[in-house]
């Protein structure tokens, strides 16, 4: 999956906008949106919100979680927890990036928010790298990745699955070699444990 596909998927998230025009509801294939009433907030998919904002037809209501205090709390929790904490939005990076680059004026304290969201992302990335290191050294083939968002997964793709595939391949070859040597009646000193060091 390419980063643009992840953004594409993230663009389906719902955000609030305040339109400056009025219009009857639109019945899109993916669901109805509207009615639009000038000055009244309405929920739309992110892709539509961004488009309307670019046309100067609305103001974006920042998602509830785009708020300094809440994000500070999340950041602290993320630092303390051994595991990944649940993010307020499955596509928080995509949403932040799209909203803040299209409509910095609609988000109060945009720059501060940007920094803190990036901080959270960095903490999570660091945590992800450490756990991958432990995971690979532990020779696992399976891991639970709860609360990891799609974009974060993507930062270790394809390198993580590929390395696991390679390790699995070595293990299978080692096992096959072991079987061959033992059937030939050779000594079992060609043990696979030598390779794992």
């Amino acid at each position: 999956m390419e980063p643009c596909i992840i953004e594409f998927i993230g663009e389906k998230s719902i955000i609030g906008i305040v339109p400056n025009f009025s219009f009857e509801p639109l019945h899109l294939i993916s669901g109805s949106v509207g009615p639009f009433r000038a000055g009244l907030p309405v929920h739309v998919p992110l892709w539509l919100g961004i488009h309307l904002r670019k046309q100067q037809k609305c103001r974006i209501v920042p998602p509830e979680w785009m708020e300094i205090e809440l994000l500070e709390e999340i950041k602290e929790a993320e630092k303390k927890s051994k595991f990944f904490t649940k993010m307020p939005s499955e596509h928080y990076m995509v949403e932040a990036q799209l909203i803040m680059s299209t409509a910095p004026d609609d988000v109060p304290k945009c720059e501060e928010l940007r920094t803190i969201i990036k901080d959270i992302f960095d903490i999570r990335e660091a945590k992800l790298r450490t756990s991958i290191d432990a995971f690979i050294k532990g020779e696992g083939t399976y891991a639970k990745l709860d609360n990891l968002t799609l974009l974060e997964m993507h930062t270790v793709r394809p390198i993580l699955p590929h390395s696991l595939d390679h390790i699995a391949r070595y293990q299978r070859t080692a096992m096959a070699t072991q079987r061959d040597t033992s059937t030939l009646g050779l000594s079992n000193s060609m043990n696979t444990s030598h390779f794992s060091q």
Partner: peptide, 20 residues
Amino acid sequence: VVGVDDEEVDLTAGSQHIIP
């Protein structure tokens, strides 16, 4: 079954995993 050695795990709805 999540491993070659028949290790088993219960997947809960909404949980995420990396697995062969």
